[in-house]
Design a protein around this nucleic acid. Structure first.
Lengths: 261, 261
DNA sequence: GAATTTATAAGTGTCGACATTTTATAGACC
DNA sequence: GGTCTATAAAATGTCGACACTTATAAATTC
């Protein structure tokens, strides 16, 4: 099994989502948390590829612990959907199928429209203003053509949205679903012109929040999520791994043929 | 700690939901599964009350195992929301607050409306017909004034709905949320005239499915869930436990003052 | 007698070990 | 050479043990 590299200093957005979910379900600084954090991060970053084995004895050596906390960490990651643990068999990094991605996006579209409605109905003006800096960050990244920067600013924007909507349950669910989709982030940005479109949507969305236009906000939010899925599907992502490790990362850098119907 | 009674022979609806969720996440017949099943059932049935301690050494004695599988079972129940595990402290049966219930119902209302839309859009006529026997069961229970019978027929109805909608993710989420709400089943049926209203809604809903009327089905489904919450709130449920063990069961038998605004 | 401190009991998180099952390796056979 | 079988290696699920923490009971103080 591959050795898992430590989490780098400059904590990226991916790690932030992971850490937040861990905060709410596990304890502050435990062995289990630390292991789940590092293994989860390795999965999100693509260092561990879908289908890779995650045997507990190997991991316990890497983290200088016994197998017990490793098992619990893997169990946690399984509940978050990042790991599969067949009985009596080695845990594996979850392989994400297209159907699964479609289903998740369907749920996300629905729940984010709820979030939008809740924000309009219940969030304070002060809370809504908190979204602005991230919109600006997205605008800056868009202008600079910084795909990765745009993506993480967008994640942060959505994070604030789920926070200020006031419904902790929907937040928990969306966080978990987001975690599983982070691997696809490169696919979701591959299409040229995507950033401009997305940015425009978010600017309109923010205005809808401010103007307390619930139907518009809900519809926009739903559309944003749906378009995210459409881009992934158009990018040709299928969930199959090329065995030589050619991941979505490389695909993301290419310009795909325009197909703007 | 109280001794946990074995699960009775005639498997009730509550156990069915629990078993289904276990089927999808755990292995077929493992120690962990058996423990999670029994403890979970005891919580749903009210045999274990919110706030009760669940220390692992005691449980391991009851099940004649070591603490390891008990810990894993409790960890699983924590992820399902039935148990809280503060670090270094004894696990407890989760105490459900009113805010939490409201949030959960908000999510359920939304996701069930999605389920309704998906059924109209994608379920086969044959699948929709599968709902009919449970509607009939509900009608019979309603006529007989059988609260409990009506409730479980309703659960079964919803179960088929989430199954035939074809989205496994939404099913998983709704199953988990349902599990946590099962304890409130008595509160949710307490209001007089509630059964007739609910039955009528479901009859209309089924017709909407058959006639492939997506907006109507979605609206009906949303209304059904919302009315469920309203009944709970009107029943005076607050989440506080009377320390002498007077649970919602007794409250359910009383007739509350009519308040049909 | 109530509140605070002290001592005792109980419980948690982690560990290393073992039996059983799965996986990988080597040998036999065609 | 390739397929099947027997053997060895490795990994899993479970166990009992131990250090450390938390909860409970007793003792002390005001």
């Amino acid at each position: 099994m591959e050795r898992i590299a430590p989490i780098p200093e400059n904590v990226t957005g991916g790690h932030a989502v992971l850490a937040r979910i861990l905060d709410r379900s596990n304890q502050q600084d435990s062995l289990v948390r630390s292991i789940a954090e590092q293994v989860g991060y390795a999965i999100i970053e693509g260092q561990l590829q879908p289908g890779d084995d995650l045997n507990s004895v190997d991991l316990s050596h890497q983290f200088n612990t016994s197998r017990t906390p490793v098992r619990e960490a893997l169990l946690w990651l399984e509940k978050e959907g990042l790991v599969e643990i067949p009985p009596r068999r080695r845990p594996r990094v979850t392989r994400l199928g297209l159907k699964e991605v479609r289903d998740i996006y369907e749920v996300r579209a629905n729940l984010y429209s709820l979030v939008a409605e809740l924000i309009v109905a219940r969030a304070s003006d002060a809370d809504i203003v908190r979204l602005e800096p991230f919109k600006d960050q997205m605008a800056a990244a868009c202008q600079a053509g910084d795909l990765e920067g745009y993506f993480w600013a967008n994640v942060a924007f959505q994070d604030i949205e789920t926070e200020i909507c006031g419904n902790d349950q929907v937040r928990r669910i969306l966080d978990s679903l987001m975690l599983r989709m982070l691997k696809l982030r490169y696919s979701s940005l591959s299409h040229p012109g995507r950033l401009e479109q997305s940015l425009q949507d978010h600017e309109r969305l923010l205005r809808a929040y401010i103007e307390r236009d619930a139907p518009l906000a809900a519809a926009l939010k739903r559309g944003i999520v749906r378009r995210g899925l459409a881009v992934i599907e158009r990018s040709g992502w299928s969930g199959d791994e090329s065995p030589d490790g050619v991941s979505g990362e490389i695909l993301a850098e290419e310009d795909l043929p325009e197909d703007d119907r």
